[in-house]
Design a protein around this nucleic acid. Sequence first.
DNA 1: AAGTGGTCTAGACCACGGC
DNA 2: CCGTGGTCTAGACCACTTC
Lengths: 239, 239
Amino acid sequence: MPQNRNGTPAYKRIQALILKRIKAGELKQGDAVESERELAKIHGVSLMTARHALTDLEREGVVVRQRGAGTFVAPPKIHFNKLVGFTEVMAGRNLTPCSKVLLFSVVDNEREIAARLGLTDNARLQKLERLRLGSGEPFALETCYLPAHEFTGLTHTMLSRGSLFSILANDYGIQLAYADEEVDASAADAMTAHLLQVPRGHPLVRIRQVIYSTKGSATMYVLGLYRSDRYSLSIRRFR
Amino acid sequence: MPQNRNGTPAYKRIQALILKRIKAGELKQGDAVESERELAKIHGVSLMTARHALTDLEREGVVVRQRGAGTFVAPPKIHFNKLVGFTEVMAGRNLTPCSKVLLFSVVDNEREIAARLGLTDNARLQKLERLRLGSGEPFALETCYLPAHEFTGLTHTMLSRGSLFSILANDYGIQLAYADEEVDASAADAMTAHLLQVPRGHPLVRIRQVIYSTKGSATMYVLGLYRSDRYSLSIRRFR
DNA sequence: AAGTGGTCTAGACCACGGC
DNA sequence: CCGTGGTCTAGACCACTTC
């Protein structure tokens, strides 16, 4: 008997069907999914294959399995610790994101940042400073540094409109993978206070992040200063 | 033929042996691990079982598998987004942790916190406020709330000495699983400034966390205020 | 007792990588 | 080409939960 009709592995087809039913609302949190034996019979596969499908889904947090009881749809997955750009954060809160480019130039004297990006001390970096607004109100000041030689086509006008993340994806074919971030607090200096429209000394969340692409290389360094009255970071940490 | 000699599943024994060799330095990053077929022959198990061992190890990030090439030891695991208590943070920096209990009492009028712990509005909560020092220097102010009825045995003196995490583990058999945290920035008020020995208005990292046990219940709410000059949070976020 | 997930066998063919 | 991991079979027994 052939092992699978098309190019897709059987266990993936089974997963896809279950995911589809969950997405369609046919299966809700806590509902029982077919047992391994039922799935095997339904899809005409062996027990191990049906099992493979469920094991995988459990690892992804889609279902929960209980010995002796059955397999059940897990609580809706919450996207913690998800790397999102400012544009996405705003969209998620139903605020209209907007940017004002304050600075767009190439620098070559940022040794520490170059080092964090895995470049030589005097590497040319495209520096980009933006005031970030949500529905017209100032939220944050973000300064990005990218290797200049990799992003020669970047222009001032591209940036005021779209999200940098989507420009990287669409124009440069770069998929971001993860970011290592350092979070602390700082007080607004005179310039920052003016731009963010807060009193001097106002507490700000400071986030310094090195963002890596799926190819494993550091593609971007971002220093962000966020108004603490309008921004907070939600994370989940595990024991 | 018996399926396994003792109570431990074969695939776990295989994993333990590989982990042991890595820990002993016998296998280093990039080194090849035995192939599935070799492992099966060595341990006298079937291919599927040897495979199970490696699949699991790969999921945990211990090894990397490459079709057609082999299985290799992955780069040393970095513990990002790990839930650690103050005591552990300090120990990791070679500072001697110490606590000064400022308040230890039962309250019943913290509606919002009770709600976050999944309790009724007027639930009795054990409130515990501690000044946290590292090698004698003030680092943070932490206020914990626990369901009072579950922790009747807690005493003032237990707390000034050991870490709360270890008390929960040793005296109450509670294993912590994860924490959902909200991070932002605030400015020190007069009282806090005095305790932390910083000027008024000094920026502080504020972390509010709900900590869950392995049984899935919320066991603790913690409000922490950290001196931003001595504390920063390192996290990794994924796309 | 019946049903579930957890472990396991002894093979098989396929797709891919490096030589 | 040969060895690797990826998929898969058609069963088996065990441990556990539910009734």
